[in-house]
């Protein structure tokens, strides 16, 4: 592969934005914490949005990647080398905060975390009761149903449209 000037600037831009947002404490900024890794997107983003790695802790991601053979009832297994690579990416960009339940067990679902439940409480940004079960959304895992830029890693308020 030839490395072109635009590619270098893109890479620099991605790195700079990752560094700039990495240290922020604001919960609303979590989803912008890292550029999306192409292997992560290909392997994990086929069945659901490639969730921002900053939404779970290292322990949570380790548990998720370690259990891909039976991933919420579905076989999401990846080849060993790819699995290690994806885990390394997730570990590098995971949230520094714990994402675990009261017994200290790592959450496996982003939707179980206190952050998610707070940001998506009924009434917030026009969320109505039953929205996650509606035909257009079907599951809180379906970020794209409302966050129209989710596939590209954008979750800003301007791109929220609740069906």
């Amino acid at each position: 592969m030839t490395i072109t000037k635009p590619m270098v600037s893109l890479l620099l831009a991605l790195t700079t934005s990752a560094l700039a947002s990495g240290g922020r404490e604001d919960d609303g900024e979590r989803s912008r914490s890292a550029p999306l890794d192409p292997f992560y997107v290909e392997e994990c983003g086929a069945c659901h949005v490639a969730y921002p790695p900053g939404l779970l802790s290292r322990e949570s991601w380790r548990a998720v990647v370690g259990g891909l053979g039976r991933h919420f009832g579905v076989d999401a297994s990846v080849e060993a080398q790819l699995g290690a690579q994806i885990n390394a990416y997730l570990q590098a960009h995971a949230s520094p905060r714990a994402s675990d339940d009261r017994e200290g067990r790592p959450w496996l679902r982003i939707t179980d975390t206190r952050w998610f439940r707070h940001e998506h409480r009924p009434g917030e940004d026009g969320l109505y009761p039953g929205v996650f079960e509606s035909e257009a959304v079907r599951s809180p895992a379906n970020c794209e149903a409302c966050h129209r830029g989710a596939a590209e890693g954008r979750y800003g308020e301007r791109e929220i449209r609740i069906p």
Binding site: G73, V74, A141
Partner: peptide, 9 residues
Amino acid sequence: GRHEVTGKA
């Protein structure tokens, strides 16, 4: 199609 669990297209 549409993923039965996640709703993704």
